[in-house]
Design a protein around this nucleic acid. Structure first.
Ligand SMILES: [Mn+2]
Ligand SMILES: [Mn+2]
Ligand SMILES: [Zn+2]
Ligand SMILES: [Zn+2]
Lengths: 144, 144
DNA sequence: TTCCTATTTAAGAATTATTATTATTTAAAA
DNA sequence: TTTTAAATAATAATAATTCTTAAATAGGAA
């Protein structure tokens, strides 16, 4: 999602988030990315246009965004956390070859799962979020 | 699952895994645990009965067990990997309060998902494993 | 507009989980 | 038994993340 700096500033104000250039730029970079980037990758991505933003600030900003529900953490088998600004419910496809994470939207499946659990429930457990992850291999035309 | 040392030795032999005391003890401890323990926790758990096993060996053994499909990694929001020796397909319930991970077996759901995707498939993606994680709160009788 | 102050930031140190290195030990094959 | 490739303990190294602190600054008040 491509968001302008002013769009983001407005969004921050609405949520009572103090609007600083590092924060706005970090969020913009995350929102633009389709790759579920890590903190390090975001840090790198903003270097060209906005050098001098520290990695610690990237981490702290990402945490803040997660707290404010503007982003979520995506954990994988790799030893680093990745982030996602797409906040509607969706599935993640993990390519075991390329480590790429792709979003997969499937309303039918979402409804099926919600329906299934709202009917059946889970004893002694209050469900907050159902996350489906699919591991496998993406088959691009020019692969192998 | 409670496995005897000799049971495990036999299992290792069948899979061509060199049978050492550290390995057998680590696997036994993991198999007995219901808690999806981390390497550190396994290391601690075996201290009493088998002191002197190094943490590095715990890590290497767990990796080996994952390679041999006797265990799998369980990733969470915490900054450490946890392990699971339950290898049939099952759901994980994450309690956001206690960080506990509970297993939840639901054949009906498993069949539903398998059926859904085998019919529909995912374009340009070969599905290897569908993992469902549910975040929420466990409501024990004596909570709060 | 200028001032004030709580919040944020940069820089770098510290922490923590995990992996790598290497000398020594050992399981198990011959 | 002897042999030897593989495993282990010890410890150093690495990498992701968090912490600390002094300097900068956003945004409200004056
Ligand atoms: Mn790490
Ligand atoms: Mn870490
Ligand atoms: Zn996503
Ligand atoms: Zn499990």
């Amino acid at each position: 999602m491509n968001l302008s700096l002013t769009q983001i500033k407005t969004q921050f104000q609405e949520l009572g988030i103090k609007s600083t250039l590092p924060r706005v730029v970090i969020y913009q970079s995350l929102a633009k990315s389709m790759h579920h980037p890590s903190a390090e990758e975001i840090h790198l991505a903003i270097q060209k246009k906005y050098p001098g933003v520290s990695l610690a600030t990237v981490y702290k900003t990402l945490d803040m965004l997660v707290q404010k529900s503007l982003a979520s953490k995506v954990v994988t088998n790799e030893d680093k956390v990745r982030y996602d600004s797409k906040m509607d419910n969706h599935i993640h496809l993990y390519c075991e070859k390329t480590q790429k994470i792709m979003d997969y939207e499937d309303q039918e499946l979402a409804d099926m799962l919600t329906g299934y659990f709202s009917k059946k429930g889970i004893p002694n457990f209050k469900i907050n979020k159902i996350q489906v992850n699919i591991n496998g291999e993406s088959k691009t035309t020019k692969n192998k």
